[in-house]
Design a protein around this nucleic acid. Sequence first.
DNA 1: ATGCCTACAATGGTACGACCAAAGGCGAGA
DNA 2: TCTCGCCTTTGGTCGTACCATTGTAGGCAT
Lengths: 260, 260
Amino acid sequence: MTKNTTVQTMFIPVQAGRASEEIALQIEAAIMDGRLSPGERLPSEREMQSQFGTGRGVIREAIKILKQKGLLEVKKGAKGGAYIRHLDVDNVSESLALFLKQHPVEPEKLIEFRETMDRTITQLAIAHADQNEKDALLKEALRLETILREEEPDFIASSELDRQLNIMLANMARNPLFEWVMHAMQMGFSSHDYALYEDKTYRERAAANWSNTARAIAQGELMRALGFIGYHYVLLRQCIDEKNALTNEPDAEFLQKDEQ
Amino acid sequence: MTKNTTVQTMFIPVQAGRASEEIALQIEAAIMDGRLSPGERLPSEREMQSQFGTGRGVIREAIKILKQKGLLEVKKGAKGGAYIRHLDVDNVSESLALFLKQHPVEPEKLIEFRETMDRTITQLAIAHADQNEKDALLKEALRLETILREEEPDFIASSELDRQLNIMLANMARNPLFEWVMHAMQMGFSSHDYALYEDKTYRERAAANWSNTARAIAQGELMRALGFIGYHYVLLRQCIDEKNALTNEPDAEFLQKDEQ
DNA sequence: ATGCCTACAATGGTACGACCAAAGGCGAGA
DNA sequence: TCTCGCCTTTGGTCGTACCATTGTAGGCAT
């Protein structure tokens, strides 16, 4: 045990079992309380190896942990190394997606959750967003409607547009917490909503309903907007019920869409 | 340029490095599509080392990644090894907590979010929960009130109890999505609510209010329950405003509570 | 003087081999 | 039969050597 005498060391040697986790925690703590900021670079593995007084493997495992957490980005070559990263919602969303894959939620529960989120977000959006944003939302909703009214709708584009509409709306609520929840939802299950778009009649009704919702929001008419949102989920529930009626299969597989 | 491989490499520069991540993905895929089930054990590191044809370090790094994701649990000793684990909300909550620490949200946004969640959850809880659970909730709320009415309240215990009350309530909503959101909230910032408990007058009012809320829920009186919830957040907002008025400091540090 | 090109150094990625530490299993002895 | 201690398995760590990638500096040609 060579207690490193270099006072300057930001890190202290470890000895307990699971050294890599201990080190990961130390580095994480350093990031969290600002001793290390996003964009900065950690010492090289070989350097940390001596600072911590461990083998290089341990350091590498610690880095792998933090990398998986999304805290680090590792680059090779000269001037490479482990750089502190800005976390973004994707990490949260990914771990949620993982969780949901092992714990399939009944579609009804999902809908219930999404519906209440939508209602709240709409309320906040009407209250907080600029008129510009509201108009933009309406414009995009109309665009979606146009796409979906075609004979051969571009499902990829419409799904993407639907997603964007939801994100826009969440953004207009001016509350980041709602944003990431929506984001996580979008990632977790690429939205049953798209089932709506498969059937022609549902498709047109849903599209028109989106436009109506957006219009109500643009005009600041909360109750009307909430009414349209309610109708959206009525449609969705109907659509899913029909789908389940056809395929006697339970919903399990329906949920297990893989997207990574 | 001695890229001896085909022109394809121009578009697929990967394949270099990242062996551990490749292996992690393979194992993860095996878990996801059921080739490996929770409770099962992976081969030993030395065995996988030869199966994958890599060094042991790579295997260990892959395991560390999956362990961090919460997919594996590693035990030492004979009959040890990497066991496939059931995912639980903690992983989601942890990554959310991490995210929130790097992206501090204004307290008001937090309160706004929590309040709408509480209202929804309460609504669902009244509709879905057994009477037994409702009574249990009331009982715990009363216990909290008792604790907080003492001259020297046990803040640790009361915080924990407050947390449990929230979790219980979320559980009663019978929707796992609300559960993990609440869970994540609790982990992310150990609740500003506790600020309420520092001041004697707020403390007693908040405690009484919790009991009232629980009682209203137990009696199935939705509107009354929502009223009490509203009052809770009125109190919380007041309390925080006062606190900010005293310390001219902005809220930044207030949010950066470290609890890991 | 300018610009290209190569060699070098820094750094992560991988391999191998050795040893330590725990933890369960099994056999010897009381 | 029960208990205790060794033995095997298996993760945890160390250390070294080597490879691959990448930025840079310095040399060479124009």
